[in-house]
Design a protein around this nucleic acid. Structure first.
Lengths: 107, 107
DNA sequence: ATAATAGGCAACCAAATGGTTGCATGTCAA
DNA sequence: TTGACATGCAACCATTTGGTTGCCTATTAT
């Protein structure tokens, strides 16, 4: 089990989400590969990857002098299941209350 | 349309997520109501609510001297639809690659 | 009218964040 | 074996973040 807070924090940064996107397009990339085309130093990317690994969103393996990064979709899935779904259940009632309140404004 | 980045950033903080939880339990609460039982000043809560409103996760109406806060579940739903779903599609292949890699380690 | 209540605004602060540079280490290839 | 390549580590920096305190304003109730 891993802390959902770390996952949310990791997802809060656009650079990190884009790294996940890149790994989604092509899994198992090296650090240098992931750096290509980014307006950031390699060290900055490393820091982001450390955070992603800590949140269990990415798992990395050393292969010789290279480090291969793999996407772990489980935490993302859990955010969807355990958190987002909860709010989707109340969705319609919440919206109708909102609507009612918006209309009340014009009285 | 609202920026997904703001939504992710707003969701990154546990206090803010707990405010959303509270509104999910009971919609249309006042500022003071939302402050009850929290280890935070009213002003801190205000700041969080401002961020949640900016991200469109909460909509507020003034009613006399009170301010009523309503949950807007749409952005949360969109995170689920536009972002989380994308990663769930590649889930099985990503996991099998991970497994393959883990096994390769022991060679 | 006046006191109590609900909220807003602004200045300030410590800690976290996202980034940098410089240098060190480990691995592969010529 | 020696240079090039892939990555790691640490110090440093500016900005953002999450929080505080103090005071001001608007609305309601007595």
């Amino acid at each position: 089990m891993f802390a959902m807070d770390e996952v949310f924090k990791a997802l809060a940064d656009a650079s990190r989400r884009s790294l996940l996107d890149r790994l989604h397009l092509k899994n198992g990339q090296t650090l240098n590969e992931l750096c290509e085309g980014l307006a950031m130093t390699r060290q900055a990317v490393t820091k982001h990857l450390v955070i992603l690994e800590a949140a269990n969103l990415v798992t990395a393996f050393k292969h010789g002098r290279e480090k291969l990064h793999y996407l772990n979709p489980v935490p993302i899935h859990q955010i969807g299941e355990r958190w987002i779904r909860k709010f989707e259940r109340g969705k319609l009632t919440a919206l109708s209350e909102l609507k009612r309140q918006l209309e009340k404004r014009d009285e």
